[in-house]
Nucleic acid binder design. Structure first.
Length: 110
DNA sequence: CGAGTGACCGCAA
DNA sequence: ATTGCGGCCACTC
């Protein structure tokens, strides 16, 4: 249960992002924190740009619920992809962090 | 190997 | 709600 992935930061990021369930979203800061560096939020974004582009990065949003700007296609595209998964959006153009934000800790408690 | 960069975050006015 | 500034850490050229 304890893989030596501690040396691979992006390995974890990609791992987590690849485990984000359908119709859910995660924040850069949270993902970074899960990797051990809560201050590496921007690095998570960087990995999204340099790392494996085959991952569902569109399920990753900012802490305030807004979408990423450097997304391939722009926020308009990022939004569409999320909406395509059933993610609810607010009238201000942000994601409903109350329903979409994924909570891995609740997956085992319900 | 060295220096710069970035799909961010938090605080203050 | 908006604007301005620093920090932080891994990745790339």
């Amino acid at each position: 249960m304890n893989q030596p992935v501690e040396d691979n930061f992006r390995q974890q990021v990609q791992q987590i992002v690849a485990h984000i369930p359908f119709g859910r979203v995660m924040t850069y800061g949270d993902i970074a924190a899960m990797c051990g560096s809560p201050r590496a939020a921007r690095i998570v974004g960087g990995i999204a740009h340099y790392g494996d582009t085959k991952l569902p990065w569109h399920r990753v949003v900012k802490k305030n619920g807004s979408l990423a700007e450097g997304y391939p296609g722009g926020i308009p595209a990022h939004e569409k992809h999320l909406r395509a998964e059933g993610v609810m959006f607010l009238p201000n153009g942000r994601v409903n962090m109350l329903e979409a934000q994924w909570r891995p800790a609740l997956e085992g408690g319900g």
